[in-house]
Simulated assay, not measured.
Amino acid sequence: MNLPNKLTVLRIIMVPFFVFFMLTDAGGAANKWIALVIFCVASLTDMLDGKIARARGLVTNFGKFMDPLADKLLVCSAMICLIPLGKLTAWFVIVIIAREFIISGFRLVASDNGIVIAASYWGKFKTVSQMFMVIVMIMDLGGVFDVIGTVLMWAALILTIVSLIDYIAKNVEVLTQGGM
C-alpha cells in the first residue's frame, strides 16, 4: 500500500476518535479542541494524499474510490455530531448525506461497468467548504464566526447540489448503459 492510500486509511481510522471526543465528556472542556485537532489533521490528510499521489504518479483505483469515501465518512460524521449541539439542523445534514449516497451508488454502478469516477473539482470545492464549515462550527467562537459559519453552511449546501448535478451530467452514460 502506497503512502497516499495509507493517509486515506489513516483518515478513516481517525473518524471514531473524532466522534468520541465530539460526543462524550471524556476530555472535559478540552473535548471540542481535541476533536477539532483530530478533524483538522484528518482534513489535511485529504489534501496531502492527493498531492502526493499526483506528484509521484501513485494514483490508484483504490485511492480514487476510497479517498472520496473517507472524506464522506469524516465530514458526514462531523455534521451528524453538530446536530445535537444545535449547530446544524437535521434536514441540512440529510440533504448532504443523500447526495453522498447518490454519488456513492453512482460510483458503484460505474465500477460494475469498469469505469472509475474520480472526484470532480465541484466535489472537491464541496468537500473543502464543508470542512471549513465544520471547523468554524466546532470552534464555536461566536460573533462574526457565527456569520462565517452560516455563510459556509449555505455555500456547502449549494456546492453539494451543484456537484451532484455536475457528476450526473458528466457521467449520465453510466446510468444509461450496461445493466440499468
Rank of each mutant, 00 (worst) to 15 (best):
residue 87 K to N: 12
residue 130 Q to Y: 06
residue 122 W to I: 00
residue 99 R to V: 13
residue 159 L to T: 08
residue 27 G to E: 06
residue 59 V to E: 12
residue 64 K to I: 14
residue 180 M to H: 11
residue 21 F to D: 00
residue 82 L to F: 09
residue 68 P to T: 09
residue 54 R to H: 10
residue 38 I to P: 04
residue 21 F to P: 04
residue 168 I to P: 00
residue 89 T to V: 14
residue 13 I to P: 01
residue 179 G to W: 07
residue 63 G to Q: 07
residue 144 V to K: 05
residue 66 M to T: 01
residue 12 I to G: 06
residue 76 C to R: 04
residue 112 D to V: 10
residue 159 L to G: 02
residue 66 M to S: 02
residue 29 A to C: 02
residue 58 L to D: 01
residue 45 T to W: 06
residue 94 I to C: 05
residue 43 S to T: 08
residue 120 S to F: 07
residue 47 M to Q: 03
residue 164 L to F: 07
residue 5 N to Q: 12
residue 171 N to A: 08
residue 118 A to S: 12
residue 35 A to P: 14
residue 152 L to Q: 11
residue 43 S to L: 13
residue 75 V to A: 00
residue 45 T to S: 06
residue 161 I to T: 05
residue 123 G to R: 03
residue 147 V to L: 07
residue 39 F to R: 02
residue 92 F to H: 14
residue 175 L to E: 08
residue 164 L to H: 02
residue 25 D to C: 02
residue 55 A to T: 01
residue 145 F to S: 03
residue 67 D to N: 12
residue 25 D to A: 10
residue 157 L to E: 02
residue 135 I to F: 00
residue 75 V to D: 06
residue 21 F to W: 14
residue 86 G to C: 14
residue 63 G to N: 04
residue 49 D to V: 01
residue 44 L to F: 09
residue 100 E to K: 03
residue 169 A to H: 01
residue 118 A to N: 14
residue 124 K to L: 04
residue 37 V to P: 02
residue 79 M to F: 09
residue 7 L to G: 04
residue 127 T to I: 07
residue 88 L to K: 01
residue 148 I to L: 09
residue 150 T to Q: 04
residue 139 M to E: 00
residue 158 I to G: 02
residue 3 L to Y: 11
residue 63 G to E: 12
residue 132 F to T: 00
residue 34 I to T: 12
residue 31 N to F: 03
residue 46 D to Q: 00
residue 124 K to A: 10
residue 57 G to P: 06
residue 126 K to F: 05
residue 60 T to L: 06
residue 48 L to P: 00
residue 139 M to G: 01
residue 146 D to T: 10
residue 66 M to R: 04
residue 172 V to L: 15
residue 74 L to S: 02
residue 78 A to G: 08
residue 154 W to I: 13
residue 99 R to S: 08
residue 84 P to C: 15
residue 2 N to L: 01
residue 123 G to C: 11
residue 140 D to V: 08
residue 14 M to C: 10
residue 1 M to P: 03
residue 133 M to D: 05
residue 101 F to M: 11
residue 35 A to L: 12
residue 25 D to K: 13
residue 33 W to I: 13
residue 31 N to R: 07
residue 43 S to P: 05
residue 149 G to R: 08
residue 114 G to M: 15
residue 35 A to Y: 07
residue 94 I to V: 05
residue 180 M to P: 10
residue 131 M to D: 10
residue 72 K to T: 03
residue 132 F to A: 14
residue 26 A to K: 09
residue 48 L to K: 02
residue 139 M to I: 05
residue 80 I to G: 06
residue 67 D to S: 02
residue 179 G to N: 05
residue 168 I to G: 06
residue 129 S to P: 07
residue 126 K to M: 06
residue 67 D to P: 13
residue 163 S to D: 10
residue 100 E to S: 12
residue 30 A to C: 05
residue 102 I to L: 15
residue 56 R to W: 09
residue 112 D to P: 00
residue 44 L to I: 14
residue 100 E to R: 12
residue 166 D to S: 07
residue 89 T to F: 09
residue 36 L to Q: 06
residue 146 D to G: 13
residue 39 F to E: 01
residue 27 G to C: 15
residue 159 L to P: 00
residue 145 F to V: 09
residue 30 A to F: 12
residue 148 I to A: 06
residue 35 A to E: 04
residue 156 A to K: 09
residue 122 W to Q: 08
residue 170 K to M: 11
residue 121 Y to D: 00
residue 79 M to C: 04
residue 78 A to P: 00
